[in-house]
């Protein structure tokens, strides 16, 4: 066990920050979706690492990670479906062009 826990936590934090930056700045809806996936994966990495280093007596962390993976998959499936149905109307997936709702 040569890599200390802190390194993984920093990796998780950096991944989450990268994902958040992408989600907030990208214009393409698909790219936003991908950035959100990176944020999810940062959290999942944290769960697995915390489980492995600190709480490996019970399977809680692993279970949480598995459920999170399943939920993230379901969520991106719905997300992609929504992107497609928006594309049918706008012929574009640029989130900045979606301005029919304002006020």
């Amino acid at each position: 066990m040569s890599v200390p826990l802190g390194y993984y936590l920093i990796l998780g934090g950096v991944l989450f920050a990268i994902g958040l930056c992408g989600a907030l700045t990208r214009k393409n809806a698909i790219a936003v979706l991908m950035s959100i996936e990176i944020m999810f994966n940062a959290a999942i990495l944290n769960f697995v690492v915390f489980w492995y280093y600190l709480h490996n007596g019970a399977l809680t962390g692993q279970m949480f990670a598995l459920f999170a993976i399943a939920v993230a998959a379901a969520e991106s499936a719905v997300g992609l479906a929504l992107v497609i149905s928006v594309y049918r109307h706008y012929k574009s997936v640029d989130v900045n062009e979606m301005r029919s709702l304002k006020g």
Binding site: A23, V32, V78, V86, R88, H89, V95, M98, S100, L101
Partner: peptide, 11 residues
């Protein structure tokens, strides 16, 4: 409007 609302809500 419905599609756009859903995508914003989702994101």
């Amino acid at each position: 409007r419905s599609q756009e609302a859903a995508l914003k809500y989702f994101l």
